[in-house]
Amino acid sequence: MNLEDYKGIWIFVEYTEDKISELTFELLGIGRRLADKLKVELSSVILGHNIKCDLNLLFHYGSDKIYKLDNKHLEVYRTIPFTDALEYLVNKYRPEVLILPATSIGKDLAPRLACRLETGLSADCTELDIGPDGNLIQKKPSYSENDYITILTPNHRPQMITIRSKIFTPQTPDPNRTGKIIEEHLELNESENWTKILEIIEEDQEDANIQEAEIIVSVGRGIKKPENLGLIKKLSSCINASIGASRSIVDLGWISHYHQVGLTGKTVKPKIYIACGISGAVHHIIGMKSSDFIIAINKDPEAPIFQVADIGIIGDLFEIIPILIDKLTIK
């Protein structure tokens, strides 16, 4: 493999119906910075059939080019045809970096594709930069050690990574930016390896879209029993917050996994994060430490959550929260 043959940064575009995902714009934001540093083009790659979303937005958010592959077999996501299509495009245009969203689709697709292309893949990168030799510096927390690890893919291309939502910010869209759309065609032949989509079920997620929330009231084992969750719900409705939860109470079945913040749950980055009765296991801290402002209420002064908190309250949530609710409702 001649590394010099690989140029440019690619972002895999994820969308539903006619709407490009917010995460895609976040990926374009960091992709733009990397492309400028390398002085190369930033491109979006979009797969689908009769794609209806407004592709100009990809230019507004920083893309120089769009590679678009339309095929009836790409109408909904399936592992093999999507892998085949991306393999074809990567081998034809040879990007040096390929960034995919760490979503259910991205996490299914990225490793399959990386293996097909015989290249490296780093999951859930949280910091990216370009090294003096032009390599992509991939940083991520090592969950088991609570360290930051730095990863390179020095001898393989493209350098592939996935990124979770709310890790990077989109750049301010520039409505005057435009670029070139390259339409690609590829014959895809159905094989035994293709899964068949029988149904796509969308579930009512209550108010649990915690990744979009500006304020999160999060709750852990300190709540003692599921009946006490009413207190947290009351507080959250007073201040228009979403409810987050630690893994322990999700595992106990006290609250649905949609609320789970942390390692096996969601990464959140709200303006205000209020941790109630959460000791702050490493799993949890990883998912919330980037919040703008963190308030922690816990009885145990040694609780690790205080180490990442801006405001620490050593006290009993059952004493403090009811008084706070009263004050918030009376005004």
Partner: peptide
Amino acid sequence: SPTKVVNIEKFQKKKDTKFISGTPN
């Protein structure tokens, strides 16, 4: 292995946590 871990560093800088104390009120 295509990916190489080249560095490991401690990532948690301790924040200057401001503690509030007193009666619940």
